[in-house]
């Protein structure tokens, strides 16, 4: 019985498991990024690469 059931292993519901997992995960993410208390942090982080500045993009030719 087990052998015949698994011989051509077909689990269509397997697709649903990760979809539900991802949906829950995504909702948590949305909750986190929309919390007003994180706004200040995000503003600061957006500028992080620009904190040490050096501009030298000209040509010597």
């Amino acid at each position: 019985m087990k052998q015949s059931a698994l011989s051509y292993f077909q689990y269509p519901e397997m697709v649903l498991v990760p979809l539900i997992l991802f949906f829950v995960f995504f909702m948590l993410l949305l909750f986190f990024i929309t919390r007003p208390k994180n706004r200040e942090l995000f503003k600061k982080m957006e500028k992080m690469p620009l904190e040490e500045e050096e501009t030298n993009n000209e040509s010597i030719e």
Binding site: F25, I33, E46, K47, E53
Partner: peptide, 21 residues
């Protein structure tokens, strides 16, 4: 890109969603 354009990234929020997804 922020360094070369001398601009902050467009949206840090989007980057969080982008990364984890």
């Amino acid at each position: 890109i922020p360094k070369a354009a001398n601009r902050p990234i467009y949206s840090y929020r989007l980057s969080i969603v982008h990364f984890w997804s």
